[in-house]
Nucleic acid binder design. Structure first.
Lengths: 329, 329
DNA sequence: TTCTTTTCTGTAACCGGTTACATATAATAT
DNA sequence: ATATTATATGTAACCGGTTACAGAAAAGAA
């Protein structure tokens, strides 16, 4: 790899001049610049980002922590972030936290050691006092931020009400909810939305809540069990994976979807179009969430003013066969 | 952030001594070491990885290029790689190439500028002469390597024969194949496996090949069209997404799966368990592939001898309802 | 006791960029 | 004609680590 000194020598100038050409600052004579550019070309010189980072304390890199990239909600989110950061010439370090705050803390330490320019965190436990003290730009994604960090989330509460109401509208009266893990904030928000809608419909009952953990298999088992004890005619699952689990359970019991039990999921991942019947769901604008978070981060990094601190994106009901019945559209 | 000089001052020693303690090399008196460690503790000092990288030309970072993380085959692969690299204290930069070699080349340039210690590439176009000349450790994943790079792939050819043979075994005689994109090597290998097995069964015919592009939607359309022209009783899809497309097309035409048309996919992504009927597939050991590639890369980076250069991992037939009929198991 | 060898520690150069500052020349203003 | 300002370039310090080298003290060998 050629260094800036090689370029300087070949062009017959000092390294400072080469640096000025590279960064387009300071004064450089037109002729000189041409010589320098030719030398750069000739040596196929690429500035060493590490040396730059050391001096400038900035690395054109951001850190991204997700709970688990193999959870189907995240790939699209990550893709959006990478796409946007790529436009601005930032590179993305990907980490899986498994919702484990110890692991997360370690990653954040490494980020600091590597001079990342910012971080996007998809996680709850923002309990990291000292870790956060620093003024590294941070954007919180898919989780609400009680702190002063900008955040991007979808409207979980109203999405859940929407889903619940939809089941009601097609005629369901005993509507169960498969709840996500209690320590995941968005799972709780969805639960509250469900509960409040049920209360306002006069249908609420503790017994209708099924405990899930966002995983298909566990949800299937839980639903199998719940359906023994308690007959229901509608299931609102806290995420799409669990909706698939519910679908399988219901079908295994010989019940028809949607005739006997209607099912609606949450997230809007591609998977919902692949089942038979296709699953209704509350679709979050996943790609857009990632893209907005990334743009927010870039703004923070580049010191631009941020007009909007907390984005709550609207969700929408996607009606498919798993909730289509009674001659309704 | 405290620097090594702060630590040195607090401990009353020189930076060299602190460095020796950090790297556990050279001679350091036991007492001195204790003082240094105390100072490190007190200041919560973490060495600056960028400064280290500059001098050592090594960054504890690797570059990973995948075609598209939102393609459901890759999240698990990426997860495996990140898990293994994390154990060895390497950090992973994730990039999406979209199979575009220009984009890929740019990423590789950036990797070099950032002194990555190695790369894992999931891509075909290894046509990057100069880019490759460097002695950065590289491992090629999910693609065969004609070059001298170590590689990890699954046995596409034999997997395809296995799938084809399985359809034959359950009684299919007109077996179509939905082929993946021609420029993707593994798609071609699967095609050759299919073709050779069909030839050896005496069932081969050009007309049985349906052109796909690994996407669900396009495959569905292609199958709808193909089934008008040509009656078949079995479909071997080049990947699972296309198998779902085929499933949808077949069901839309009012045909039963597996009774009228049996379907088998390829890859073994979780999705195949979520359809109705569940899809048979050829399962690749995805996590294992990623983990092996990562371990290989670490070995190369750390200069350890590599016993095995090219891993071809066995695949296995997962028999599910989409190919279960005629009283067969 | 003296010579070697081992242990311990510090100074300074180095990695490859960036930039403050000094200097020199050209252009413009007074 | 002289003072001022704009343009152009180089020197060297700096970012925060690592390590070659040198020198001193302690331990072991002759």
């Amino acid at each position: 790899m050629a260094t800036i000194r090689d370029v300087a020598k070949l062009a017959g100038v000092s390294v400072a001049t080469v640096s000025r050409v590279l960064n387009q600052n300071g004064y450089v004579n037109e002729e000189t610049e041409k010589r320098v550019r030719k030398a750069i070309e000739e040596l196929n010189y690429k500035p060493n980002e590490v040396a730059r980072a050391l001096f400038k304390k900035t690395s054109k890199t951001i850190g991204l922590i997700v709970p688990d990239i193999s959870n189907p909600f995240f790939p699209e989110l990550v893709r959006a972030i990478e796409d946007v950061m790529n436009i601005y010439d930032y590179t993305v370090i990907l980490c899986n936290s498994d919702e484990n705050s110890e692991k997360e803390r370690k990653y954040i330490d490494v980020f600091k050691q590597k001079y990342v320019d910012g971080m996007i965190l998809t996680t709850n436990q923002l309990s990291m006092e000292e870790v956060m003290e620093l003024d590294i730009p941070i954007v919180v994604l898919d989780r609400p931020s009680d702190h002063s960090f900008p955040s991007v989330i979808a409207d979980n509460y109203n999405g859940a009400r929407l889903a619940t109401r939809h089941l009601y509208d097609i005629g369901c009266r005993k509507i169960a909810h498969i709840q996500g893990p209690a320590h995941v904030v968005n799972a709780m928000q969805r639960f509250y939305g469900y509960r409040d809608e049920m209360k306002s419909l006069g249908l609420w009952g503790e017994a209708l809540v099924i405990q899930g953990n966002y995983q298909l298999k566990q949800a299937k088992e839980a639903v199998l069990q719940a359906l023994q004890a308690n007959r229901v005619d509608g299931i609102f699952a806290g995420n799409d994976a669990m909706a698939v689990g519910a679908l399988k359970a219901v079908q295994q019991l010989g019940l028809r979807v949607p005739e006997d039990v209607a099912i609606i999921g949450y997230d809007g991942i591609p998977l919902t179009e692949m089942t038979t019947p296709e699953l209704s769901t509350i679709s979050q604008p996943i790609y857009e969430m990632g893209a907005i978070a990334a743009r927010l981060l870039v703004k923070k990094i580049e010191g631009q003013p941020i007009d909007h601190f907390h984005y709550v994106l609207p969700v929408k009901l996607i009606e498919r066969d798993s909730t289509r019945r009674r001659g309704k559209s």
